[in-house]
């Protein structure tokens, strides 16, 4: 079963690499969905079935679909691809890649030198337990999350409105 984990991990990493290098938005999106599915599998293997299900339903299912809608609305066509090609020259990868490398090295240092070798995923955690914990000690967090979602809802509605006046958008009486 460990092999499945490493395989899924490899798929996730490769797919993520493809996401950040594609020129076509829809292609990148699809690769991201692949990556998300791989991570969902990893969740399952670690004994977190609820997390896996939620990852697939919400992340890959809802959020990515939202992205699809927006991309379709914006009608990004071939000119976008040409634009991306112009923007993504090999030279600009150096700085961020170096930064990313530095971060990974630091994280590796922490993980390797710390006492973190304990195996994970030995006991699966059932959704029931998650539910009890969620509405037990983390109840306040749930309420706060609902605030956040409400705010997101209102904000998205307000910002997404198409103002009929010209000029700077967002001028609401």
């Amino acid at each position: 079963m460990n092999a499945a984990f490493y395989l899924a991990a490899a798929v996730a990493v490769i797919a993520t690499g493809m996401v950040i290098t594609r020129l076509n938005a829809v292609h990148a999106l699809l690769y991201l969905i692949v990556s998300l599915l791989a991570v969902a599998l990893i969740f399952l293997l670690l004994g977190a079935p609820l997390a896996a299900a939620l990852e697939m339903i919400l992340y890959a299912g809802a959020i990515m679909v939202l992205f699809v809608f927006v991309i379709m609305m914006l009608n990004l066509g071939p000119q976008t691809v040409a634009q991306e090609r112009a923007w993504l020259r090999p030279g600009i990868w150096t700085g961020p890649a170096a930064l990313g490398l530095v971060l990974v090295v630091e994280l590796l240092y922490v993980f390797v030198t710390g006492d973190l070798g304990h195996p994970a995923g030995q006991a699966p955690v059932a959704p029931k337990q998650v539910g009890i914990t969620l509405f037990g000690p983390y109840l306040l967090g749930v309420e706060l999350a609902s605030f956040l979602l409400l705010a997101g809802l209102v904000g998205a509605y307000h910002l997404g409105r198409r103002t009929h006046r010209g000029g700077s958008g967002g001028q609401v009486p």
Partner: peptide, 20 residues
């Protein structure tokens, strides 16, 4: 259906994905 992968590996994966 569960594995016993060292936690370190999981965290390394998370770190790599984050950096990317």
């Amino acid at each position: 259906m569960t594995t016993s992968v060292p936690m370190t590996h999981g965290l390394i994966l998370a770190g790599v994905l984050f950096a990317m």
